[in-house]
Design a protein around this nucleic acid. Structure first.
Lengths: 140, 140
DNA sequence: ATTGGTGCAAATCCTTTGCAATAGC
DNA sequence: GCTATTGCAAAGGATTTGCACCAAT
């Protein structure tokens, strides 16, 4: 898959993805770094971040900002929703590619007390779509 | 309102809230700071952040993390949803205290091309609720 | 052999903290 | 006057960058 993109297969990349998959869910770069160090003690922070960016770009990893001041990384690429605890900061997955309302219900069913639910829609705004549609410019 | 909480009414606090209200939408601390400086040139970053925290705590301001690396502040306290453009980073309000699904529809109706919608539910998880319910401990 | 990847260190950015001076009550 | 609040400067943490070396192809 890396080869297909003309990129090199390095032990760092393999170990980082593997570590992230083993950690399972919402891990900070620091947690991933610690796990990686057990196998690859010399792996550096810049490499870690660069690799995570690459994996995100490749669609193998998702990056998620829960407002905790650190980015969280997730090897599960299926879209899903999240419940963030205001008290302890824990991020709970709401599994499944389900409608937002069902996600909310699911969280409540698991004992989570929602105070506020916010939908973040990620996509392309009108202006940027128009810009990329403009003739003479290479569409993305 | 500040008095009611035994807090002092300072020009900084008034000007910061006023600036944020005038800016209207999702402003970064830096934007707010710039606006504040026009009226209160000496207002410092620590004061700005402290005041914003205070306003958030008082419920007059909401803080929002759109994954852009900076916090956005919003003087509109009514909960609403957001659409973030992957290309230009613009954050669009989806007005109204409406159901997430309607929010998604609303964004599409305005020309936004959604790629991914994620519901963030903020609240209190089971463990933290149980902890605060525990007898002998002061409930929050 | 080539050149993309890596590691080191330092830089950057946003935000917070310590402390003396100031201003609200 | 008492004390919260401010401003300054510097610290702090997460992430990125520049550059020389190394390793995958």
């Amino acid at each position: 898959m890396l080869h297909a993109r003309g990129l090199r297969v390095t032990s760092q990349r393999l170990v980082i993805l593997d570590a992230l998959r083993k950690l399972g869910r919402h891990s900070t770069a620091e947690e991933i770094g610690r796990a990686v160090h057990e196998e690859l003690p010399a792996c550096s922070a810049p490499t870690l971040y660069a690799t995570l960016d690459l994996l995100v770009e490749m669609g193998l990893v998702r990056r998620l900002d829960a407002g905790l001041g650190v980015a969280l990384y997730d090897a599960g690429t299926r879209p899903h929703h999240h419940a963030v605890c205001r008290v302890c900061g824990a991020v709970q997955d709401i599994e499944g590619e389900i409608a937002p309302e069902d996600a909310l219900r699911s969280a409540v069913g698991r004992g989570f007390e929602p105070e506020r639910a916010e939908l973040m829609v990620y996509g392309v705004c009108v202006a940027c779509r128009d810009a990329s549609d403009a003739p003479g410019l290479a569409g993305d």
